[in-house]
Design a protein around this nucleic acid. Structure first.
Lengths: 314, 314
DNA sequence: TTGTACGCGTTATCAA
DNA sequence: TTGATAACGCGTACAA
């Protein structure tokens, strides 16, 4: 028992004894069994992070930052990929919650009722990622996707364009919030046209962006600006434009979202929204740390904001 | 005890009883405690996968495939990101091995002696990913990076070019094997020039590709073909070429590696090597499954090959 | 086919 | 400050 305390650094143990225990542990190559530890304490030192995709680098950046904060504190971060599926998320929650994680980080607020209940009932500290809410007692770190979508669209408007399209894929909640921002910005100036939206449920990719852009132009030859919900789509559009001799930004302004790899050297360079996902990861992990230690946190909802990066394409 | 057997589907239990147990479990929302299970059986149902990076989509595809095979079999896949660091890998191994995983999948063969010993001593079934070896008793699924590098270079040679450069970043073992393939192909025809290699230890990215290409051209204005060790670098080069008015493939042939997203619609479309990483994931996971079940596998080294995809850039 | 006894390696609790 | 004892919730081994 004393050895257990010595190794964990809890309770009062004679410093000399601590040293001896440490040495013995090292000599014996002793490593505590996490299973026994979890069984006895009804807690594991793991933190579950649920993201909808690993293909979108946004979430890789997020995970990286989370790991950087949590790993040094001795937490194991368990990555769960929901593949944008409520059912898979429910499955993952059921599985992971059985491991009695110390905390959890989950993406967004939209999920099945069962998932919601499991999170609630588990009593495990939870911080929500990417989006914001002002529901009391809900801890979240994110940004207003709606405001960001609105900002992009307004930027397009200030460039004097009025036939502004919106092209999206992978219609997750955040994408739809950006769509809403797009709509509001256009409604404000009375030039919203539902026909100018192209929503594809397909997985987002550069190739899809090229294809959607091509289709879009055929259906709306008069469009003078397009807001793509993610940079990969926009990058594809830029490539397709090059191929078809469509001058960007002269003929059509192109704006993306997220500022992914390659957007700063595309041709032309892509105007986009920089989302501070590393900061989201860091702050969410830090907030979770406080929650896991039983402390209260300053503000339960942290808005990390976003930045409009104006480059050449719009 | 009977309930335990019924739920796990092992041993002989009356089918009617199995049904009753299932119902009761469902009614009670019973979920077995993985910690208790691991403690009692000295085995967890998890499989550890160690990859060097999540930023390179190659590994995302791999993980996806592994998950698709293992999850339905009831295995938890634990993702470990070594960040191309031997030390981090060692750390991860120490941590994860303590969880007594049922199996492990690790990338490549280059690691610290301590890591090697831990894998060996653990007795946990292990399949190596991405590379090949003919060392007996070592299970691996991958491809000859050297042969693939050679194939690209030979292709460039068949196009009549002789001043062929090699540009690489993130100098991991596989990149260096590709470099070796490049060298051999050129040595075969007597036109290998060490000065034509540009090796950067930096993290690979589209932006880096653009920068390296620019530097490269200044130092070697006479180069007539370049083999980039990864598609992101090549994509960056293509963009930079566009910017500087360098005609690809007329002036310089550009070839990449891995056939990543966007390479099929870059401008011009990128000639590259398609690596079947999903297949690597699937086959490695399947092989591991056999190993974990105590079975022997047909061949311990599986070469999944590669495919030269000739498009417009070379 | 079902059930009993025990132990897995740790921590909580309480006593010394 | 240290130590003894009893769980934690399962699976193994063996008996019925």
């Amino acid at each position: 028992m004393t050895a257990s305390r010595a190794l964990r650094g809890v309770g009062r143990v004679d410093p000399a004894l601590v040293e001896r225990v440490r040495e013995a542990a090292a000599a014996l190559q002793y490593v505590p069994d996490p299973a026994a530890r979890a069984l006895a304490s009804a807690r594991s030192s793991s933190v579950v992070v649920l993201v909808p995709s690993l293909a979108n680098t946004v979430f890789i950046d997020l995970l990286e930052a989370v790991h950087e904060v949590l790993a040094p504190e001795g937490y194991q971060v368990l990555i769960g990929n929901t593949h944008y599926s409520r059912d898979e998320e429910e499955q993952l929650l059921r599985n992971y919650l059985a491991h009695r994680p110390s905390g959890m980080l989950v993406t967004g607020f939209e999920r099945s009722e069962a998932s919601r209940r499991m999170i609630e009932a588990s009593g495990v500290p939870c911080v929500y990622l990417m989006e914001l809410t002002n529901a009391p007692g809900v801890h979240c770190v994110g940004l207003s996707q709606l405001a960001a979508g609105q900002a992009v669209t307004r930027h397009l408007l200030t460039r004097g364009r009025r036939r502004i399209g919106f092209v999206a894929a992978q219609l997750d909640p955040r994408t739809m919030q950006r769509a809403e921002g797009y709509r509001r910005a256009l409604q404000e100036v009375g030039c919203y046209d539902p026909g100018l939206e192209l929503l594809s449920p397909a997985r987002s990719s550069v190739g899809l962006g090229a294809a959607l852009f091509k289709d879009y132009l055929e259906r709306h030859p008069d469009v003078d600006a397009i807001f793509f919900c993610n940079d990969d789509l926009a990058q594809g559009a830029l490539l397709e434009a090059l191929r078809r001799g469509i001058r960007i930004p002269e003929q059509v302004l192109i704006a993306g979202f997220n500022d992914l790899d390659g957007s700063d050297c595309s041709f032309p360079r892509l105007t986009t929204i920089r989302t501070p996902r590393a900061e989201i990861g860091r702050r969410a992990a830090t907030m979770l740390l406080q929650l896991m230690r039983g402390g209260r946190v300053g503000q339960s909802a942290v808005d990390v904001g976003f930045e409009l990066v104006v480059r050449e394409s719009a």
